[in-house]
Design a protein around this nucleic acid. Structure first.
Length: 482
RNA sequence: GCUCCUAUCGUCCAGUGGUCCAGGACAUCACCCUUUCAAGGUGGAGACCGGAGUUCGAACCUCCGUGGGAGCGCCA
């Protein structure tokens, strides 16, 4: 049985890198009829918050992840929150001490720092071992600890040997002996450290494949030793490369929006985000780019995951979101647009409802223009605001020699007896029949006269939606001057 | 400093020893379509980090160099 997990720590919003790791785990699990497990790594009490966890869960759901085991859904290997598994880690750590694979250390941080400095001064790696730390384990020190009510930390004895894994993405990776020294597995607070808790959890949760970012590759050495010390079978490993910012540095806040929440706010569709993220280090066998979740699940294999780092390209994500927006029908688009429109103050709830058909056409006319929903209100303004008339427009029209067309259009509009889209088309045909005109120039200036803008929604929609009276009014101002 | 990972168009990917004067996508440029703009269509420009080696033959294999990234916490 294939069992994978995504194990975020609830210390902030879900990062796009994290979402990509989750996605790869998910695709791998679903492709192989396996289980996708969500585990919350909240052993860092200082930084973990319940709010972060909640937002993480919400975002995961919004993106479309469904976990088979984890917070909210349970499962037979729970609990799935590390903060609820404390006795397990404690028990495991002490078991290792009994087996002489780990030891207690009664050392104070200042003393440790001193050892470290000495080692550094001797140009040695700052690695600790039992010999260095056991000198502090005196009866007096033990008494002191007891009196102060603090617990000794537990160090894991790092065996002096090479470790090799066959990473599914990186291939054979060998960690040379002596690279790391003994390390803490249980803190003085009684809480486990990351490298220990992951192994205990992965082992107990019967995780078969550990798919994670390659920033954890170096940590794997310690984890390998712990797996061995606890006599648990090793899972398979697959280290996915990192996502970098445009400057080649690890993607972070200073590169702009990096949290999934932020993209949600800006009006990105979850399918665009997932589709784009899947394409970072992975590709469809036929180089297909736009894919549904089902297609991704169907085609995903770890062999096709590239092992080099990828630079995050927001522009391509934006393009892709545009592709998905264009696939939406007008009702769906309007549903998504609603909250942005209301938040902008262009319309209120009742106004929106009573003018639904009108707003739907207005929003629909924007479909090919937008890449994110938050662009909608601004582009909608032309339907709500009258442009401020500029005298230069009349001059420009005369220079373009399109003034006869404007005059003819004005008369046609004035005598028009109906105002639906086909009639508007007909009306323009009539104008063109009577006046020969450079259409490029004519339509451009017509847009300017009607909206005050150089570009915007479909002109027919603009004309239809502002209505005949507004059309006449706006035309009049310029026709009077030519 | 030590250890590990990595290196194909500006960017993301394809390519697993000959089918590659290297293919697709984003971005860019030109043209076409068009009731402006956009969307769409067609086309252009654009890359195998450097050096050795293995081989009849290397983008693909090996080594060295260089560049980039990551880890070395009682953070995860």
């Amino acid at each position: 049985m294939i069992r994978v997990r995504f194990a975020p720590s609830p210390t902030g919003y879900l990062h796009v890198g994290g979402a990509r790791t989750a996605l790869f785990n998910y695709l791998f699990a679903k492709h192989n009829d396996g289980k996708f497990i969500l585990r919350i790594e909240d052993t860092d009490l200082e930084r973990s918050t319940a709010e972060s966890e909640q937002s993480l869960l919400n975002t995961m759901e919004w993106l479309g992840f469904k976990w088979d085991e984890g917070p909210g859904v349970g499962g037979e290997y729970g609990p799935y929150r590390q903060s609820e598994r404390m006795d397990i880690y404690k028990k495991m750590a002490h078991q290792l001490v009994e087996q002489d694979k780990a030891y207690e250390a009664y050392v104070y941080p200042e003393e440790l720092e001193k050892i470290r400095e000495e080692l550094l001064a001797q140009k040695k790696s700052p690695h600790y071992n039992e010999e260095m730390l056991s000198q502090f384990d005196t009866p007096e020190r033990r008494e002191e600890y007891k009196a102060k009510g603090i617990e000794p930390v537990i160090y894991f004895k790092m065996p002096y040997k090479d470790y090799t894994i066959n990473d599914l993405i990186k291939g054979e990776v060998t960690f040379k002996k002596g690279t790391v020294g003994d390390f803490v597995i249980l803190r003085s607070t009684g809480l486990p450290t990351y490298n220990f808790a992951v192994v205990v959890d992965d082992a107990l949760m019967k995780i078969s494949h550990v798919i994670r970012g390659d920033d954890h590759l170096s940590n794997t050495l310690r984890q390998l030793a712990v797996f061995e010390g606890m006599e648990y079978p090793l899972p398979e490993f697959a280290h996915v490369s990192m996502i970098l910012g445009p400057d080649g540095a690890r993607l972070s806040k200073r590169h702009g929006a990096t949290s999934v929440e932020k993209y949600q706010e800006m009006g990105y569709l979850p399918q665009s985000i997932m589709n784009y993220l899947a394409l970072l280090s992975w590709s469809h066998p036929d180089e297909k780019e736009i894919m549904s979740m089902e297609e991704m699940v169907k085609e995903f294999t770890i062999e096709r995951v590239n092992s080099s780092a990828a630079i995050y390209d927001e522009q391509k994500l934006r393009w892709m979101n545009g592709v998905y927006i264009r696939e939406l029908d007008d009702d769906e688009l309007t549903r998504y647009a609603k909250k942005y429109i209301i938040a902008s103050g262009l319309m209120d709830e009742t106004h929106f409802k009573s003018n639904y058909k009108w707003i739907r056409e207005a929003v629909g006319s924007l479909k090919k223009k937008i890449h994110q929903f938050d662009e909608i209100p601004e582009k909608l303004e032309v339907f709500f605001k009258e442009p401020i008339f500029k005298k230069e427009w009349a001059q420009q029209i005369k220079d373009d020699d399109t003034d006869p067309a404007f005059i003819e259009l004005y008369h046609q509009v004035k005598s028009a007896d109906s105002w639906n889209i086909p009639d508007i088309y007909q009306l323009f045909k009539e104008v063109a029949k009577r006046v020969k005109v450079n259409s490029k120039k004519f339509y451009h200036m017509l847009r300017v006269v009607l909206t005050g803008e150089e570009d915007g929604p479909e002109l027919v929609n603009v004309i239809h939606l502002i209505g005949r009276n507004q059309m006449l009014k706006r035309l009049e101002r310029v026709v009077d001057m030519i």
